[in-house]
Design a protein around this nucleic acid. Structure first.
Lengths: 236, 236
DNA sequence: GTCCCGTTTTGCGCTATCGCAAACTGCGAG
DNA sequence: CTCGCAGTTTGCGATAGCGCAAAACGGGAC
């Protein structure tokens, strides 16, 4: 059984207000696992047997319609929890989780959750906070989809990704995991074609540099301007 | 100080697993208030001084953009909590709450939350469940906005309203509070014009009967069919 | 009973974005 | 080094739904 170093996770929001001894106890219930790039961690509709904490890598949570269309619910960054179906009393995962990079996760059995919460009430409070924040973000996303045009939505999405998982380079900020046009389309409610056109346009204006599953924001501020433009003044 | 009858609220999800004595103690921290139709309960951006439980009436939670556009986050039905900003650690309300009918609410000071949660951990667990469910609904809404046409989205929205707050009549199901075309537009990410056209169409097909801030589903099943149609076969 | 205002309906032109199709390209496998 | 494919780019026609404008409607106030 892999031993997890408490110091690596002690500072995470999930464990705020948890004593080192308690943390130790909590971690003893978990096992860790490695998922190679592009492998599925769990599938939408499957029994929610576990919940997860991402240690390394990046995970994409996506939801699929009966007719096969997908949206990206979110990208999970290291330090974040996912697969919290048990927290909402769901027996099955409402989305699919795919490792987009080689990833390492901690895994707790869902069955351990009630006991953990009882022993360490901060866990529930911390999780509530996390889920609440996600709910707000979700509302913001709905607001954007209702009121903004595609270009602004894409701009916002990239800025969020940059904030969450951006790697600072001399020439700008790079999204630190492989992400395709299709992925961005599924985050913003549009098509990969439209995303491609938009990024091409931005590239020719020097706002971004991009390639196969790779995006660098060369001029983040310029993108902020685009994101905030209230749908009037035209461009080139 | 208004005395609240515990028996009226004991069965609510929020209080699952709470003993009658504990419930009594919890309710002692609350006061109740009445809000007349169309009055604001709190405004987006205001200090989150309280959180609420709706006893009677209906409340609309709406979010406004800097440029003044609005979306309806949700309609609150009796028995549901709202204004839970403290649960996510927000100091200000992320949305505005308006009573759409004369409404009665229980009000707790936000400052009481930490103490209540400490004494009654089920409250945190129950709230987590509620917020988690809302998060899922929110994701479903995003999925719909991304993949469905306006008519289907409106169909889904009405069906949800009917389920949550429908009053059964001989001639169908009536949405049990005043709701305008504009409101529905703000729930589905479209314009009141488009909603009006859609409802006119449905009315002439006998699917609904509607008027000023009033909608009756005459043929709920027909609307289910519309909602599930995967964007192909046309109509009149 | 009459007036007024908020809500709803409807027409019409416009355009952002989709959807399909086809060509191109860079990376990884072997 | 070369091949093959997933990912990307781009063109072009089609259209759902928007935005504006104006008229009709209905219910409450007085």
């Amino acid at each position: 059984m892999a031993k997890v170093d408490t110091s690596l996770v002690a500072h995470l929001p999930l464990f705020a207000g948890v004593t080192p001894e308690a943390l130790d106890e909590i971690l003893r219930e978990a096992r860790s696992a490695r998922y190679p790039k592009n492998s599925a961690i769990f599938e939408q509709g499957a029994d929610a047997q576990s919940f997860f904490l991402l240690l390394h890598g990046h995970v994409r949570a996506a939801k699929t319609t009966p007719t096969g269309e997908q949206i990206v619910v979110r990208y999970v960054a290291p330090g974040e929890t996912f697969g919290l179906a048990m927290a909402i009393g769901a027996a099955r995962y409402p989305a699919t989780a795919i490792a987009v990079d080689d990833s390492v996760v901690l895994i707790w059995p869902t069955s351990a959750w009630p006991r953990l919460v009882e022993r360490f009430p901060s866990l529930a409070a911390n999780t509530l906070q996390t889920v609440g924040t996600r709910l707000q973000e979700s509302h913001t996303r709905i607001l954007e989809m209702s009121t903004q045009q595609v270009e602004q939505r894409v701009a916002h999405a990239l800025l969020r990704l940059a904030k969450q998982s951006g790697k600072k380079l001399d020439q700008g900020i790079e999204i630190d995991f492989p992400i395709s046009r299709q992925d961005i389309a599924q985050m913003t409610g549009t098509t990969l074609h439209t995303v491609s056109r938009i990024l091409s346009g931005w590239e020719s204006q020097g706002l971004v540099e991009s390639g196969r599953q790779r995006i660098i924001l060369r001029n983040p501020h310029g993108i902020v301007v685009l994101a905030e433009r209230s749908a009037d003044s035209g461009a080139v």
